[in-house]
Amino acid sequence: MTEIVKSITTPIRLEYVYRPGRATSRFLRGLAEGRILGQRCPVTGKVYVPPRGASPTHGVPTEEEVEVRDTGTVTTFCIVRIPSEGLSIPPPFVAAHILLDGADIPFFALIHECPFDQVRMGMRVKAVWVSKEELAPTFESIRYFKPLDEPDAPFESYREHL
């Protein structure tokens, strides 16, 4: 009697070559210099960080470069409590939306140097960079954000960014 096979394994491996394009290249080069560079939408004047070269609301190129600060306000966040593939740090940890000072769209980053259950909406935070020698054109140049010793921002100041 032939044994019925239930399943087979079919490994798939494909290799691709990625190129970041101009806007992302400028942003990543900025990180290598310890700077956070956004781009301004020519129609709405809003500053996008990281920039993708296009205004998502108007379908036009964003060319004007704007440097934003590495401080900002936590608009909202999630406490990740389960481990999963690809995480470099053990849970629990906080992943936050951070509205950088000078930007008009939240930036995603981790928050450390603060107990995870004390992170708040409105909390003021600052980027913690890798050492000067380690700065490189990658997102990893910013290790995470840490709390600033400042009063929380009022809800009204960021409610439009939720």
Partner: peptide, 14 residues
């Protein structure tokens, strides 16, 4: 543009 990078898409589908 910055230099290119390799991206590997790999999974042992069952």
């Amino acid at each position: 543009s910055l230099q290119e990078a390799k991206h590997v898409l790999e999974y042992p589908y069952r």
